[in-house]
Amino acid sequence: MGKEFVYDQGAFRSLLEDLLFTYASEQGKQWLDGKLGQYAAQFVKSQFNATFSAIPRFVGKQVITLSTQEAEKLDALVPGFSALPLSIDRLARTWWILQVPTNNEDQYITTIEPLFLAAEMNELVTLYRALPLLAFPSHWTHLTSEGIRSNIASVQDAVMLQNPYPASYLNENAWNQLVLKAIFTNKPVHQIIGLDERANASLALVLSDYAHERWAAGRTVDPMLWRLVGPFINEKNLPDITRVLQAENNVEREAAALACAAADYPPAKTLLQQSNLAQAVENGSLTWNTVASRLI
């Protein structure tokens, strides 16, 4: 397993330090400083764990509103990091886990992994948001799948949305579970990083089955689902797209048009040309982003 960080760890850490310096109270900073001193002098795992848990007690938990410049700097290093609400405890906890030395893989993993196992809700959110920051990146796929299985909405969001880790490291099955669960739990699917890049034929197949189930139950289907089916339209699912293109709801018709535009299958192209949305797709006034903005 490679241990290299896939981002500039030094730059990210010092950026976090700058933010803590800006947003933490004097008292909170002193407490963190003291803990870092103890930690540097001698590593005691129970101390490390207690500090991780106790951070909100001493540093607070207020929500931070970053300046555009600060958010851009963070996201330039780790895409999406600033996207979900950021609080002072999450900054401090993220900074704290970045202190763990990476010279011994086994020690690194046995320090970080138990944090997941004993985590409360906010800790889980912090840990899952930190997935792209951890060393030995391929080790964390199992825990990522556990996070996707979670029924806690904020934890699901932390793993699924604006997080570059899953697209880079999950295998196809695990990735497909993530997307399915996101659709199933009404997430804003367009916020999944790598959504189009990791679209695949078996996911498209499962999703059209899922749409059929919803229709049979008299329930609605997230129009964004067709974004993942589009590149894999074939003679089998063409009737689905045809149906959606005739839906009563505008946004559903728009999604079907965009799906047709992404297809390799000529009859889908023909279908699009026959619809009155062809021009909007052509001139770029209709995109998945405009569909997404209508769904919110």
């Binding site: 996207a83 979900l84 609400p85 909405a153 904020s154 969001d157 949305l161 604006q162 009404n186 997430k187 804003p188 916020q191 919110i296």
Partner: peptide, 13 residues
Amino acid sequence: SLDYNGSRVLRGG
């Protein structure tokens, strides 16, 4: 309270 920038993110529900 968990709504963020008008998006559905973190809408615990």
